[in-house]
Amino acid sequence: MEIVKEVKISENGFVFNSKTGDSFNLNPTGLALIKLISEGKELDEIKKEFVSAYEVDDLTFEKDFYEFFTLLKHHQIMVQSDPLEFK
């Protein structure tokens, strides 16, 4: 699963999806996370980076990560074509 090519993300956390016409704001953690996702990094790698950089434990981060991921799919920033795909 990757970020769809129509989505542009600015350095200050503004997101525009030219496919749907929707725009979004990211908070600073959201921006850091989406950057790592767009680099194609996997959860384990991202989690390691976050836990070492932020005041967060790995379980809390994992929960938040999946919730964020669900929202990205909901806003069509990422597309899941197969409902059984799990990454």
Binding site: D22, F24, N25, L26, N27, G30, D64, E67, F68, L71
Partner: peptide, 8 residues
Amino acid sequence: YEKPVISK
């Protein structure tokens, strides 16, 4: 840390 958020 703040929970990552994207808002429309």
